[in-house]
């Protein structure tokens, strides 16, 4: 069964006296179980709106969605999801231990279950050393860890994380990243939004991209349509000066680091031809690497295309 299914999910914010804002327009999405799904888009594209809809914080204007077959408007659906908002806020006067106890009680866990949850989550997110300090004095990274911990209480099969890594230092990011990968290995489905594309690229099985409330792309990271190979880089050594000069003239770009020459050519065809010439000139191929368009470039291009429409 699919973890998340949305059908024509739309949300329009109406405020009296102001123009209606169509935050999300007809989102159709299907996310399989045990998938890590990255949700990308610029600020205001509708990522947070989608997440709030899935978590029952706001009500859809039209369309619907379900989590593991349960309508999102029902309480049962929310039992299956752990949610971490962007910049999680908690009661400042509680300690992480009290916070997790509180959420455990909201989930209807017994005291023994709550203790078990604490042991599991605190181990995963290294909470033990801050367990009994009030959240009031916490740094951003500590809060983020508590937020993640709260999402994990009750061991829900689906985790929805809103910008889980924004504003964290490298160590914090790594901790979150490793936690996500571990949870994926445990069989969880993870849906997270981000505008840090390298994280998405590294973690996600599939991504979806929102532009102005519309899903414009949706697919495997390595299969995104239109994600082009920009050029191919051929690295060679053992070339003498004359041979190198001829080859430089034939390639689109060239750099030399010590005795290593880096040639750039437009595509694999040219790369193969170049490689043959290098070998013929007595050189040795060290590496032949296709350079893909980065996700950033890709999204910038898509956005421009959408904006132009």
């Amino acid at each position: 069964m699919a973890a998340i299914v949305t059908r024509a999910l739309s949300k329009t914010y109406k405020v009296i006296g102001k123009a209606a804002v169509r935050s999300l327009r007809g989102l159709d999405l299907e996310i399989a179980e045990n998938e890590v799904f990255g949700f990308v888009g610029r600020n205001g594209a509708g990522k947070t709106t989608t997440i709030k809809l899935l978590c029952g914080l706001i009500h859809p204007s039209s369309g619907g969605a379900s989590l593991f077959g349960e309508d999102i408007r029902l309480r049962e659906a929310r039992r299956l999801v752990g949610y971490m908002p962007e910049q999680p806020y908690f009661y400042e006067y509680l300690t992480p231990r009290e916070t997790l106890t509180f959420y455990g009680r909201l989930r209807g866990l017994s005291a023994a279950q709550r203790q078990a949850q604490w042991d599991r989550v605190a181990g995963l997110l290294e909470l033990e050393d801050i367990a009994d300090r009030r959240i009031r004095g916490f740094s951003k990274g500590m809060r983020q860890r508590v937020g993640f911990a709260v999402a994990l209480v009750g061991d829900p099969p689906l985790l929805i994380l809103d910008e889980p890594m924004s504003g964290l230092d490298p160590i914090g990011r790594r901790m979150i990243r490793e936690a996500i990968l571990r949870l994926r290995d445990e069989g969880k489905t993870i849906f997270f939004s981000s505008h840090v594309l390298s994280d998405v690229e590294e973690l996600c099985d599939r991504i979806g991209m929102l532009v102005e409330g519309r899903l414009v792309h949706h697919g495997r990271v390595d299969e995104l349509p239109g994600r082009r190979m920009k050029e191919v880089e051929v690295s060679a050594e053992g070339l003498d000066g004359a041979a190198a000069a001829t080859l430089v003239a034939r390639s689109a770009g060239h750099r030399q680091i010590d005795q290593v020459h880096l040639f750039r050519v437009a595509d694999l065809e040219n790369a193969n031809a170049l490689a043959a010439e290098i070998l013929a000139a007595g050189g040795r191929i060290r590496e032949l690497q296709p350079v893909r368009e980065s996700l950033d470039d890709f999204f910038a291009r898509i956005q421009q295309k959408e904006a132009a429409k």
Binding site: V5, R7, H59, G64, S66, I72, R73
Partner: peptide, 11 residues
């Protein structure tokens, strides 16, 4: 699965 089937619980 059809999320539109159950009447909105709020109503």
């Amino acid at each position: 699965m059809n999320p539109d089937v159950p009447a909105p619980p709020r109503r």
